[in-house]
Design a protein around this nucleic acid. Structure first.
Lengths: 362, 362
DNA sequence: CCTCCCAAGAGTCACGTTTCTGCATGATCA
DNA sequence: TGATCATGCAGAAACGTGACTCTTGGGAGG
């Protein structure tokens, strides 16, 4: 007949709390907690009984209370850099979608959920969600969000090696330089004499590394660099830049486009100038889109394997959160894959160079 | 010199709590809370002082504690139906990406964040995150997740009208039937005599409504239906079905494809059969992808306006969460847009039918 | 017979907020 | 001058869990 009993009548509205379960089962709160969480030492009979009662009452433990008590929320932030007011950009579309999809699956498999949080979010949104850790995609140099998160003691894993001295817990990235060098060798082997590049004006790591790799390759083989830059986040500028590249007096006979839409843009530009692909112009672009398998002609693409990156990033983050010290290195390099199609081969391939792929697991 | 003071020394490790701020500012906890949240009646001097101290200590309120106390987490679930083990399917890729992007923006603007939660998640994940409400994309008939959420008293807004008697709070959808009828009229006006359909074997609402609209149209104009179905979630089956459709003895002279990749698949199939587009075959497909602007020829697409849908869904949900009774109807129909390009016009258009679109705001 | 120990569960505190109530102090007004 | 009132703040009660610490009863060992 304590005041407590009276004041907590019926457990507020609707939702049954742990107290209600305890009362209905005729045991204490502790017993309920232990029974449901598999802790403590209880006979199976009691455990079953409690679980049954909880089920009957439709009891769902309060996530907020559990988070407050344990300090773990089971939530992982997925931070994307933004251009303008929209999260993630046009050119990263397919990449981001694949990466996020894999990350979601991987997190879920380990009992975590993903929260999408653009880096430019209002500060109050960031502090309003209890995160156990964060994945950042392509953090900029000295990213204030990352710094703040690390200061709070949260693990941060980045997709893309961090620029400068950004103190991330771990990172996953491709070897962009090796990929570009490989790809250029592939084009040269297919007969390219002068390879052009379609690149971006932004200073992000991907663009920078790829471009310098191109310049180094040119220097090595003694070719004059032939490239055009454009602001990659502008959906229209790509077509214009592709046109400029093919209109040059020193027109290249092969082109590599760094961004996803470059393939279709370059195909369209080639048609305008009456260039046949691959006879007059060899073509490769970096893309995760499957449309390039059915274009006319199919276009060779460089895949950054976003699914593997998304999975790896989440695994590293959750390991850090749970304090698991796996043997895994905190810096992981994921190999890229060159999917060779008609556009980069002077004559039809005798054998399929990339193995026929079933729905693709990685 | 109470035990409380001693036991709470330094506020555990690192993170400063509201108590530390109160102590450092020489005021009570209440005053700190009021000062930071803009409540209560405090002179500006005190408010500024408290804020300054909080800033100096790097105080961040605990989201978990706030959620526990207020019952609001600021989190919205984004549920996607799954095929197999991956969240969202291949064919919905561009649609989902655009929709999720708009939803994220809209939620953020109102101080909410989005949590990605596939419908087939392990139950413990669902109950481990405190949601204020949920957006469900294309809920299936009698979806158990939706039922459970509603039972918990959470508002649920669906993208796509709910099948059966699913008790959602509100929904947003296109008028799929009207869109298909319009589109078929457009093809007929361009000279199509026999229009074929590439559709899916699944029974989701979109597929069902679109197909029956097609059948109704055929009946109205007295044309025999010519269609092929395939499992839409299989990336390879689409190409095969497109081929089948054009290989039929009663080959259509115009085709509408219900799914995103159908355009490129049909283009490829047409090339194999030596059919010129649009001279021998008119083509339209439902897609949000921008690649169809630069294919050869550019393909007319039906856009379901996922950005507007994503925005509308989130607005309705947050209104419901906050108990705002806007005049907005709880059932919103978003108009579709037919983006007319070369593939559906027997002769080049004299004027641009769809206005030249800048980066597209909606 | 006394003690010790272990199973089985009860009580209670703390997590970090928000918010309701309450208590002074000075100003206002009849 | 005494009653009323607004102001400026402090105290304390929740919110619903999880995790310690205690209590109780009974069996085994000395």
């Amino acid at each position: 007949m304590s005041r407590t009993d009276t004041s907590r009548r019926g457990s507020r509205q609707g939702r049954a709390g742990i107290r209600d379960v305890a009362a209905a089962a005729g045991v204490s709160i502790t017993t309920v907690s232990d029974a449901l969480n598999g802790k403590g030492r209880l006979p199976d009979a009691t455990r079953r009984h409690v679980r049954e009662v909880a089920e009957r009452l439709g009891y769902r433990p309060s996530a907020a209370a559990r988070t407050l008590r344990t300090g773990k929320s089971g939530l992982i932030g997925l931070t994307v850099t933004t251009y303008g007011e929209e999260p993630f950009t046009f050119t990263e579309f397919a990449y981001f979608a694949e990466m996020a999809r894999a990350a979601t699956s991987a997190a879920l498999a380990r009992g975590y959920a993903l929260v999408i949080l653009p880096a430019t979010s209002r500060h109050d949104v960031w502090s309003n969600v209890a995160l156990d850790g964060t994945v950042v995609i392509d953090p900029s140099d000295h990213d204030p969000v990352v710094t703040e998160l690390v200061r709070q003691g949260l693990p941060v894993v980045s997709d893309g090696r961090p620029a400068g001295t950004l103190p991330v817990t771990a990172w996953v990235d491709n070897d962009h330089e090796a990929a570009v060098l490989d790809l250029l060798d592939h084009l040269a082997a297919a007969g390219a004499r002068r390879i052009g590049l379609l690149t971006g004006t932004t200073t992000d790591t991907y663009t920078r590394l790829s471009t310098t790799a191109y310049l180094r390759w040119c220097e090595r083989v003694g070719q004059d660099p032939v490239y055009e830059s454009y602001p990659a986040h502008d959906p229209c500028a790509g077509a214009v830049a592709a046109d400029r590249l093919l209109a040059r007096p020193d027109r290249p006979d092969a082109v590599y486009g760094l961004f996803d839409p470059n393939g279709t843009d370059l195909l369209a530009a080639a048609r305008r100038y009456g260039l046949r692909v691959p006879e007059d112009l060899l073509l490769v672009c970096c893309s995760e889109s499957t449309v390039y398998a059915t274009t006319e002609p199919p276009v060779t693409t460089l895949s950054l394997k976003p699914r593997r990156i998304g999975t790896a990033v989440v695994q590293l983050l959750i390991d850090a959160i749970e304090g698991i010290d796996t043997g895994r290195p905190v810096e992981q390099v994921i190999p890229t894959e060159l999917i060779v199609r008609t556009s980069s081969q002077r004559r039809p391939p005798r054998t399929t160079v990339s193995a026929p792929r079933s729905p693709a697991r990685d």
